[in-house]
Design a protein around this nucleic acid. Structure first.
Length: 319
DNA sequence: AAGACGAAAGTGGTTGA
DNA sequence: TCAACAACTTTCGTCTT
């Protein structure tokens, strides 16, 4: 308990800046930069009444956590789990709580008792072990994708739920965790492309997709199709484009959506084309290849989308 | 030489009988 | 379960800057 208390403090200190950021969100002071990565490009609105970081996707206002019905359900489930572990509320500390469990069973302490308990607790230990592995995988991938803590936590919660429903048995943990992270990103409106997720995962795209569909069905999750707008901030940031262009691209996408030009089209291709057009209009030209490299869609698709958009919306892209 | 263009064939996922 | 289908990719020759 002593260690837990100390961990709690450490965690609180490390998350201090984030906490302060949240306090400010409720107060009068205006947030100027992202508490997670320090970026100054913060985005607001899109009808969601939230502020988030354009670079890492951290959602700074808290409203979204209370949004979905799923989250409420998690919370009630979490309560019992958390009292069992006795860990405070944040993900990092939760992890530490688990490592305490490992120490408890390590050689040198209580080996005699362990022998007696081994048979009885064997199953519990292996599931516990794989759970720890799953959390570390989520953390590893989330770090690689520079995802904020709240999304890591969301993915961990989903994993717990899947475990409780016995959905993990007989499936690869890597596939499940990757898919859950992908889902969590979508739910927070900060989608990663399937390709980006696959790159840092240990499994292939096919397995990720299978796990993704499986989990959506079994956990009864609703993930609305990603909006092209959700990809704009990050792509613009990766292309080193200004906030003006970001706004312009979003404007184009909104018009395109109204004109129903986005129906049946891949959101990433739309986002790529809108950014390409916006960049040219603003005099900060990016080649189709540059946009293609960042977004993962081919130049051909960018061309097709950008032809459609510029013609239908009557945007002159003449140089 | 690099970027943009577009035709044509190929790929993987979705849909509907 | 299978075939049709749309979106997207790959490839490649041509035009433009």
């Amino acid at each position: 308990m002593v260690t837990l208390e100390r961990d709690k403090k450490e965690g609180a200190d490390r998350a201090g800046e984030e906490e302060r950021g949240r306090d400010n969100a409720g107060g009068k002071e205006e947030i100027k930069e992202c508490p997670e990565c320090g970026s100054r490009s913060l985005i607001r609105d899109y009808g969601k009444a939230e502020i988030f970081c354009a670079d890492c996707g951290l959602v700074i206002t808290e409203n979204i956590v209370d949004l979905g019905p799923e989250w409420r359900a998690f919370d009630s489930e979490q309560m019992s789990k958390r009292t069992r572990v006795g860990a405070p509320m944040t993900y990092r500390i939760h992890d530490k709580g688990l490592s305490t469990v490992v120490n408890w069973g390590s050689p040198g302490q209580g080996q005699y008792k362990l022998k007696k308990l081994q048979q009885r607790t064997h199953i519990a230990n292996t599931t516990e072990r794989s759970f720890i592995f799953a959390l570390s995988e989520i953390d590893r991938m989330a770090c690689a994708l520079r995802l904020p803590v709240n999304i890591r936590e969301a993915a961990s919660m989903l994993y717990r739920k899947a475990m409780k429903k016995r959905l993990i048995r007989g499936r690869s943990i890597e596939g499940i965790t990757t898919a859950l992270l992908y889902i969590a990103c979508r739910q927070y409106g900060v989608p990663r492309t399937l390709e980006e997720v696959r790159e840092i995962s240990r499994v292939g795209q096919k397995e990720i997709s299978r796990a993704y569909r499986f989990l959506l069905r079994e956990l009864d999750l609703k993930v609305s199709p990603a909006s092209p707008i959700d990809f704009v901030p990050r792509f613009c940031s990766l292309l080193d484009l200004s906030g003006d262009i970001r706004a312009k691209a979003i404007e184009i996408i909104k018009k395109a959506t109204e004109a129903e030009l986005t129906n049946g089209r891949g959101p990433i291709g739309i986002a790529a084309a809108a950014i390409y057009i916006a960049a040219i209009l603003s005099g900060e030209h990016r080649t189709q290849k540059e946009v293609s490299d960042v977004t993962g869609v081919t130049e051909v698709t960018i061309r097709n989308r950008y032809k459609e958009l510029s013609e239908q919306l009557e945007i002159d892209v003449l140089l």
